[in-house]
């Protein structure tokens, strides 16, 4: 974000033509990515876009099929343990050990990195404080809420003071309160200089946290830039949403779309409304009324990353 971090750049992740196949299925089809020190970098994309496969390769737990990948300047094929020693990994599904209590989950995990017992305990207490779980130190993991488990997982990913923190859909399945607490913690880490790489399909999360991101679809990168950049490049400043009472008009939104097609840079007809992409949404609404069209509801809003995302990856459901 700051110019200093950009100029003192050092590649934390460098991928060139990176590919991953599982048998005949190509999950990642040749992507170029560079993440620099201190950045918060996002992988966005619908399910099956190749985000998680990419993250697993970056985490040095999944062998690369093709292309080159360097993490912290090292080759994961030959230096996996040395790379993992410097990574923090927060997986999509919790892998906390329910045999252990909250604090032991941190202390014992620290020992895997070769940390001495005393130091691991001290770090565990520090981290429990950081994720606001100090009063749960002795609790069984299974008695924690979803948000608490996530915070504990994030705490665990920090036991080795990682240079690079990988977060795979860190807030999926959490309620809004829990998400905001988590964002706050991640933001603090970012401010402290930790390089964050996250996958998400929440656009607000990406806008909140990411300095730069790529949108992936079907194993390829379809767009890259800062959230603002992407909105500027792939959408308009504003969107006018028009909802018509279809019974009165006697026709569908797709037919109405043709009547307003010239009012925006792009018009999208959804079953329940029209989206008119334009620099000035109010002006669009005024002109629609001038043409004698009577929408039952109108909404003018700023373009979001979600508009970009849907434009680039389509509205078709991916399961």
């Amino acid at each position: 974000m700051t110019p200093e971090t950009a100029t003192s750049a050092e590649s934390m992740i460098l991928a060139r033509g990176l590919r991953k196949s599982f048998g005949p299925f190509e999950a990642v089809k040749g992507i170029d990515v560079e993440v620099r020190r201190g950045e918060a970098f996002g992988f966005l994309g619908p399910n099956g876009a190749g985000k998680s496969s990419t993250m697993r390769m970056v985490a040095a737990v999944s062998p690369v099929t093709g292309g080159t990948l360097r993490i912290l300047g090292r080759d994961p094929a030959t230096e996996g343990p040395a790379i993992r020693a410097r990574l923090g990994v927060c997986p999509q599904e919790d892998t906390l050990d329910s045999e252990l209590n909250v604090r032991d989950n941190l202390v014992i995990y620290g020992r895997y990195f070769g940390t001495a017992r005393r130091e691991a305990e001290q770090r565990a207490d520090e981290l429990l404080d950081f994720v606001q779980l100090t009063d749960k130190a002795g609790a069984r993991v299974e008695n924690l809420s979803g948000g608490m488990k996530r915070r504990l997982t994030i705490a665990r990913s920090l036991v080795n003071r990682p240079d690079l923190l990988l977060l795979d859909e860190p807030t999926t399945g959490l309620d809004p309160q829990a998400r905001h607490v988590l964002w706050d913690r991640l933001f603090r880490l970012k401010q402290a200089g930790v390089t964050l790489v996250l996958t998400t399909h929440y656009m607000d999360e990406a806008e909140q946290l990411c300095d730069r991101l790529v949108v992936m679809d079907k194993g390829l990168i379809v767009a890259e830039g800062s959230p603002l950049d992407l909105i500027r490049r792939h959408s308009t400043r504003e969107v006018a949403e028009l909802r018509f009472g279809l019974a009165e008009e006697g026709t569908g939104h797709d037919v109405l779309a043709e009547k307003v097609a010239d009012l925006g840079d792009r018009v999208e007809a959804l079953p329940d409304r029209l989206l008119v992409y334009s620099a000035d949404g109010e002006e669009v609404v005024a002109k629609v009324h001038e043409r004698g069209l009577r929408p039952v509801a109108t909404l003018v809003r700023r373009s979001t990353l979600e508009d970009v995302f849907l434009r680039l990856t389509g509205r078709t459901l991916v399961d």
Binding site: L72, R74, E79, P81, A82, A85, R86, F113, G114, T115, E126, L127, D129, F130, L158, N160, R161, P162, D163, R188, L189, A192, G193, V194
Partner: peptide, 15 residues
Amino acid sequence: PALDTSSGATPGEAL
């Protein structure tokens, strides 16, 4: 208190 995020172990130690 701010969390200490300074880098921990020296990288590249053989395990």
